[in-house]
């Protein structure tokens, strides 16, 4: 499984094209899942270049933490309506052939679009 990392750009990592330099140097195919105006970015880094990329980013002053948190799913409350499937931008939720809801946590980027859409309140933000 490819790991997800939360990058926080601040301090000396600001004002430089850090990620572009990183990609050019390591040639890693970094996938940006989510980015916000506060300087946070959620990325997926291929396993083969993970070590190089993390070292480069940390050297440039980027705060890097592995992102394990995903939307929490309560199977007991779920009624398999699948309403969340058209809201999830990454396809983390889908209905299988039996129309049972399947949650692929690996795809969740914690955007939270699904949480207030669930009529059974089966989805929630992870507790830190």
């Amino acid at each position: 499984m490819t790991k997800k990392y939360l990058l926080k750009f601040g301090g000396r990592a600001l004002g430089k094209p850090v990620l572009a330099d990183c990609v050019l140097k390591t040639k890693a195919r970094i996938n940006i899942l989510k980015a916000d105006a506060e300087g946070n970015m959620l990325v997926k880094i291929p396993k083969s270049s993970e070590e190089k990329v993390l070292r480069f980013l940390r050297d440039e002053g980027v705060d890097v933490t592995e992102q394990k948190n995903v939307v929490e799913y309560d199977r007991e409350r779920c009624i398999d309506c699948g309403l969340c499937t058209s809201l999830c931008p990454t396809g983390a939720f889908s209905l299988d052939a039996e129309s049972t809801l399947v949650y692929n946590e690996d795809k969740c980027v914690l955007c939270g679009l699904c949480i207030d859409a669930c009529p059974r309140r089966a989805l929630s933000k992870p507790k830190f």
Binding site: I79, D80, C81, G82, L83, C84, T85, S86, L87, L95, E98, S99, T100, P119
Partner: peptide
């Protein structure tokens, strides 16, 4: 455009 059902087919 993605579609989804409010009513569970399984149920």
């Amino acid at each position: 455009v993605r579609t989804s059902s409010v009513a569970p087919l399984k149920k």
